[in-house]
Design a protein around this nucleic acid. Structure first.
Lengths: 201, 201
DNA sequence: AGTTAAACTATACATCCGTATAGTCTAAAA
DNA sequence: TTTTAGACTATACGGATGTATAGTTTAACT
């Protein structure tokens, strides 16, 4: 059970977080006090001590602006590449194919080697994956049956539900208008498993 | 043509950059001096002034640790709050209701006041919004007809397609199993428009 | 009623920090 | 040869900063 914050402590923590966001630097003790209208810097200091004791922030004694919000800034976002296309062959993430980079939340998408891929087609609409969405892909060679995977067939990427059947692979779309396909294992290159979806409306 | 740096200035700039990377904070004047073995803090200060004049760094006068390296990735991610519940009344983002914070890509979700909300229920499955998804909400009081909005009815949040009809509001789910509802304008509190969806699989 | 804890005021201290003044040394440019 | 500029030393000032001591107020719990 995590230590709970009092209302005021939550406010202070949020101000610190906001200050780092906006100014790019954590506030000083007095800047916190000033923001809340405290007459004494100790008022802010006590909240800092409490937040530190409860593990929400860390700080280096005697060092100015040394407050760090746990889980922020260092552990915050991760930059992953957005791939335009994926070509057959060895290096999955070919530098030439990197369209851009996006920042995703480390705590939500933990995989370090993940990358993003823009969805083409509507093979997965019943699983809530639409054309234009970004899927977060975790490279994986042997996905579990039923998981949504990215596979490469004849230099084209498709997203389907994956079922291994002996030396064959069944690829099932989540779209009643489309039919499952059964392919030989050596004819498909398994890229990875879809671990997330990001859609901009 | 950019101003060129002297050897020493480049060393100082490198140290500043490295310090930000490693410690998460820019160094103080004296920390720079100490690293290079300077006996006087002015030695470091002069380099800082030169780097600032040449446009490689910026700083706020009289403010401790305020050096910023120009062009260094500050954060392409933005931290937004994830709300547990939304209560009727004035402040949409009640501090007490912040469950956690997530980092989203600034370039994708540009709105500064956005927040995230975890989806409960299956009223929007046909629009690819499932239970457990995080929706990114941009606060807005008068959404366009047809846009996916978050509204508050009797202290409960729901996500529906929004249609304004005179003094009434039609809320249309994207789920054939559910029926549209027609409500008086004063009985609903419009929270905002859904601008994005994040799903973890 | 007594105790505890959170929240805050008032004041103070030693150190840290950005900045300033004055001057030294060295090497390249005029 | 004189000048100029980069790099640095020695010392110091005023304000900012983290921290400390002592005490007040308010609400919650025993």
């Amino acid at each position: 059970m995590p230590d709970l914050l009092t209302g005021r402590q939550k406010q202070v923590l949020d101000f610190i977080r906001q200050h780092i966001e906006k100014e790019g630097l954590p506030p000083t003790v007095r800047e916190i006090a000033m923001h809340f209208g405290f007459a004494s810097p100790l008022s802010a200091q006590l909240h800092i001590n409490a937040l530190s004791k409860k593990g929400f922030i860390t700080k280096t004694p005697l060092k100015t602006r040394s407050i760090k919000v746990v889980g922020l800034r260092t552990t915050e976002g991760r930059s992953i590449p957005v791939l335009g296309t994926i070509r057959a062959g060895k290096p999955i993430i070919a530098l030439e194919e990197i369209e851009s980079h996006i920042t995703i939340d480390k705590t939500i998408f933990k995989n370090k080697d993940a990358f993003a891929l823009r969805v083409k087609g509507d093979s997965m609409i019943e699983s809530g994956i639409f054309e234009g969405d970004l899927v977060i892909v975790k490279p994986e060679k042997e996905p579990l049956n039923g998981s949504i995977t990215v596979v490469l067939i004849d230099n084209e990427t498709t997203i389907k539900k994956f079922y291994r059947e002996k030396e064959k692979v069944r690829l099932v779309p989540a779209n009643k208008a489309l039919k499952p396909t059964l392919l030989n294992l050596q004819d498909v290159q398994i890229i990875g498993k879809v671990i997330g979806v990001i859609r901009k409306l």
